[in-house]
């Protein structure tokens, strides 16, 4: 590691993940320092989503270790053995990790503001009044104060994704995971979501972003990681690696997406 920063926000060591007979992640090592934005790129099926889902323990892992803010995900270390954490502790570990999905997954039976209030009320036991106040603030921040009482079905894709980001932020996360947040959007709606993410990065939020938006990676990313076949084949400063990619497969991949 270069900087004098102590522990990174996310530390991944020798991560392996199998689905049945297929090994999807074949030994991933990755550090995400506090306040940095790491962009993960790679061809379809290379394991990018799986990598993110392992970080917040939506998937179990087959070997390796993942720490988030110094907390070993999914296990307690007692003596020289690992013990699987009970479900309540998994929920507690997930709480400070926000996740934004490609297809938004807003709760369709709740309005925009109710979506944002859901986490604090149900999980953090915040009072309704306080949750509403925070939610109004967050919707303001993503530019949707005037859409608070709309249901997801009444919002455009870009607006839905911004509500989804606000919903995650309502849990006061220390880490945000984005899984292709703009891939399901019409081209003219992509920028409004990227703008919100750019603002978020500027506040010092630590982010892992799976994306095909190389412009965003170049501009906002502190680190770019190219995953192919379940391993990281190229990594570095986005501006440098995009300007002169060393790996052949990365170069071929860039030829397709740029």
């Amino acid at each position: 590691m270069t900087a004098g920063q102590a522990e990174p926000m996310v530390k991944i060591r020798s991560l392996r993940k199998r689905f049945g007979a297929v090994e999807v992640l074949k030994g991933i090592d990755l550090d995400v320092p506090h306040g940095q934005v790491v962009c993960v790129v790679g061809p379809s099926g290379s394991g990018k989503s799986t990598l993110l889902r392992c970080v917040n323990r939506m998937e179990t892992i087959d070997s390796g270790r993942i720490w988030v803010d110094g907390d070993l995900m999914g296990y307690a270390e007692r003596g020289d053995r690992l013990h699987l954490l009970p479900p309540a502790d998994l929920c507690r570990q997930r709480r400070p990790i926000g996740m934004v999905f490609q297809r938004f997954h807003l709760f369709p039976h709740r309005t925009a503001i109710e979506n944002v209030m859901e986490g604090p009320i149900t999980v953090l036991r915040t009072s309704r009044a306080e949750a509403r106040r925070q939610a109004e603030e967050l919707l303001e921040r993503v530019g949707l104060a005037d859409r608070a009482d709309h249901y997801p079905a009444q919002l455009s894709g870009g607006q839905q994704q911004r509500v989804a980001i606000a919903r995650s932020l309502a849990m006061r996360p220390k880490l945000m995971l984005f899984d292709e947040p703009t891939s399901a959007l019409d081209p003219e709606l992509v920028q409004e979501v990227l703008a919100v993410m750019r603002d978020l990065a500027a506040t010092g939020m630590t982010m892992m972003v799976v994306t095909h938006e190389m412009g965003f990676a170049r501009e906002v990313g502190d680190q770019l990681v190219f995953v192919d076949g379940g391993v990281i084949v190229e990594r570095g400063n986005p501006r440098e690696v995009l300007a002169n990619p060393r790996n052949d497969r990365f170069r071929a991949f860039l030829g397709q997406v740029l």
């Binding site: 507690r92 997930r94 990790i97 709760f107 919903r167």
Partner: peptide, 12 residues
């Protein structure tokens, strides 16, 4: 995806 979004918020 609904279940996943809810679990990602830390719901039991």
């Amino acid at each position: 995806g609904q279940r996943e979004a809810a679990e990602a918020l830390g719901m039991s």
